[in-house]
Design a protein around this nucleic acid. Structure first.
Length: 645
RNA sequence: GCCAGUGUAGCUCAGUUGGCCAGAGCAGCUGAUUUGUAAUCAGCUGGUCGGGGGUUCGAAUCCCUCCACUGGCUCCA
């Protein structure tokens, strides 16, 4: 007998070799029907895997993220079985679960798969699921596994095997499909009910663009059709919040073939938002001791050779224009220009930290396939600044930047974010990273310490640093689930040297400053793209391009309405009037769709009472007030920067 | 850049196996209407069917090529 400890601390005895599923069955059949996998001593196991020693166990059902992963990974195997049935002889790489769903990377050989085939595969998967085949685990020696895949001629699985040690290797089989897999899996295919294969994509083998491109099929499955349907509806809803759709509908931005891909034209409504954001940045940075500068959009080749950007960055810069034998590049970053401003004057340690800020316009020739709405563009306006400081000042400055991020995130109601410490890869020193092994370690430690001291949670990732130093990237998720880097805070120990930047220290010696590059609001493009999805186009009052729309019921009340318009304008409110001879219902509908926060309905009653009727976007009629009162409310709301939910 | 897909009026979309001057709704314009909290009515304008080339008696429909966009990969603020 073995002792099994349950999450509530209860200990019960079971026969040696009982599986989690056996145990669940003894508790109740209902539970057993729901168990997808089990955590055995904090490791996820197949529910049917025999337990031979005393253990702590926890049943995993659909509600548990780990069970979902197991479910989706098992679904990937199910899809692989269907694919193998359709295209015999194909080879499989890996098929991991995702946050929502799964994929499998497949070498289809000479076969081509089209979107229509996904339907067929779904049907095939449903058939196979219905057979309710068990996922059978088998421990196997490395020799035997190598033999199996050698005979199959499967170089991919052999490659996986080469990285595995003998002893821990397992095969999983369901129906006619056997895969090298560490598991775990759900008990049988019958659990998979709602099946949707979402897309086909190419993916480089091992994520390296020099390697062969495999076919990746994405899918998602659920234990019931109903849950799948609900998920698909959710996806449809998410599309409505897409910043590209909203951007067009609300007149925020546009792009044009004749201007060029990735080049954003900010329309009047978008420009209002940009100006408000810049106002916020200016106020915030002024208080934080930054000085504003303005620099040209181009620079000579020599500038980028000095900075060291050119060798690392040339591919993503617009090609140079040549004048009188000198090459000029469009700037892809503002730092070299700022460094030259630092260099233009003598600096004493007493001047430091020296902080230069600019909403700098940069041009990056991103690969065509990388462009994506506002999130990835070729002309961007960066909320950039460079801080020149001493080593002693570094910690405090770096922390102040992080604090600024958090302050901004509060204003915008950004609750979900992760700070990511991006480190170098020692193997790539001299290639992707400047060859200063000690400085890398030193600055990485400095940043790590700052984060720890400030008690800010962060994750560390290898091989993600800037070429000149480690950085903190801030990952955010828009409400529709897109993840991207919004802000960045970088240490630079290299450019100070290469630009021969100096200050005089207490001992009257020349010393090179450390440089912090930072962009808390990222770029206008990405930030506004994010905000569009974050607010679903319903911008808080302070950012709303049009804050108030006046809706006269008929032109009889136009004069009064225009009077209101002028008073609001004088109060610095962004206000418009709808003079069309449409019915009030129509005017309201159009204004609601444009997501304008306040509507003022003006008819006979308002004129007689010298009031205005207020309607709040999404909330309906709010009753009437006199105009002065309303203006005060507006001013307060603007000042609070709060979003109405 | 790579893999797969899409590209028809300002927008959202129809357009059957290639075959009468390419359609609808919304928007726009003109007129009527003067309206009380999410769509008033009528008429009209508007399209080299992404560009170019080819197959064919005939192409929005088939083929090639280029461009743009979409979903991914690589890359990234």
């Amino acid at each position: 007998m073995i002792n099994i400890t349950f999450p509530d601390g209860a200990v019960r005895q079971y026969e040696q070799g009982s599986s989690a599923l056996d145990i669940a069955k003894q508790i109740s059949e209902g539970l057993a029907r729901k168990v997808l996998a089990a955590e055995v001593n904090n490791e996820v196991w197949d529910a049917k895997r025999p337990i031979n020693n005393d253990a702590e166990i926890k049943f995993l059902t659909w509600d548990d993220e780990k069970a979902k992963s197991t479910f989706w990974h098992s679904s990937a195997h199910l899809m692989a079985e269907a694919v193998e049935g359709m295209f015999p002889g194909v080879k499989f790489w890996v098929g991991p679960p995702l946050e929502k769903g799964f994929y499998y990377d497949i070498d289809l050989g000479d076969n081509v798969i089209a979107e229509e085939d996904l339907k067929k595969l779904e049907i095939k998967m449903a058939e196979l699921a219905k057979q309710n085949n068990a996922y059978q685990r088998k421990e196997i020696s490395k020799e035997e596994a190598v033999k199996y895949f050698s005979e199959k001629g499967d170089e991919y699985k052999l490659d996986l095997l080469s990285g595995l040690n003998d002893g821990g290797i397992t095969f999983y089989t369901q129906g006619n499909f056997t895969d090298l897999c560490r598991g775990p899996h759900i008990p049988s295919t019958g659990f998979v009910k709602g099946i949707k294969l979402t897309s086909i994509a190419g993916a480089y083998w091992k994520g390296d663009e020099k390697n062969k491109m495999l076919t990746r099929i994405y899918g998602v499955t659920f234990p019931t059709q109903k849950e799948l349907d609900e998920y698909l509806i959710l996806l449809e809803e998410a599309k409505k919040r897409d910043h590209r759709k909203l951007g067009k509908e609300l007149g925020i931005f546009t792009m044009d073939d004749d201007v060029g891909p990735g080049l954003v034209l900010w329309m009047p409504n978008g420009t209002v938002i940009i100006e408000e954001l810049e106002k916020l940045a200016k106020e915030t940075e002024l208080q934080a001791g930054y000085k504003r500068v303005l620099t040209p959009h181009i620079g000579k080749e020599s500038l980028y050779l000095t900075s060291g950007h050119l060798p690392y960055y040339k591919e993503s810069m617009y090609p140079p224009m040549e004048l009188d034998g000198v090459k000029y590049y469009l700037k892809a970053m503002n730092c070299p220009h700022h460094h030259k401003i630092f260099a233009a004057e003598q600096h004493s340690y007493k001047d430091l930290p020296f902080r230069l800020a600019e909403y700098g316009t940069c041009y990056r020739y991103e690969q065509s396939g990388e462009l994506f709405g506002l999130m990835r563009v070729r002309c961007l306006h960066m909320n950039d600044a460079h801080i020149y400081c001493t080593r002693e000042q570094f910690a405090q400055e770096f922390r102040a930047v992080n604090d600024m991020y958090i302050k901004y995130f509060k204003i915008f109601g950004i609750e979900k974010y992760v700070m990511r410490l991006s480190l170098h890869d020692p193997k790539k020193l001299g290639q992707k990273y400047v060859n200063e092994p000690e400085l890398w370690i030193e600055t990485e430690n400095m940043v790590r310490q700052v984060m720890k001291d400030a008690d800010i949670p962060f994750v560390e990732v290898q091989d993600e640093g800037a070429f000149y130093g480690p950085k903190i990237d801030v990952q955010v998720w828009s409400t529709i689930g897109r993840e991207f880097t919004l802000a960045t805070n970088q240490v630079d120990f290299a450019q100070g040297k290469s630009f021969k930047l100096e200050f005089t220290n207490q001992n009257n010696e020349a010393e090179t400053p450390l440089i912090i590059h930072r962009a808390p609001l990222g770029t206008h493009e990405r930030f506004i793209g994010f905000l569009l999805e974050h607010y679903a186009g319903k911008f808080p009052l302070w950012l709303a391009p049009v804050q108030v729309k006046i809706l006269p019921i008929s032109d009889k009340f136009l004069e009064y309405a225009k009077n209101v318009l002028n008073k609001l304008k004088i109060a610095d409110i962004r206000v418009e009037i709808d003079e069309r001879s449409e019915k009030i219902g129509k005017k309201i509908r159009d204004t609601e769709l444009m997501k304008i926060p306040y509507m003022l309905v003006i008819g006979e009653r308002e004129v007689n009472e010298e009031k205005i009727s207020i309607r709040r976007q999404g909330k309906g009629d709010m009753g009437s007030k006199n105009l002065e009162e309303f203006i005060e409310l507006l001013k307060e709301e603007v000042k609070s920067k709060k979003a109405v939910v």
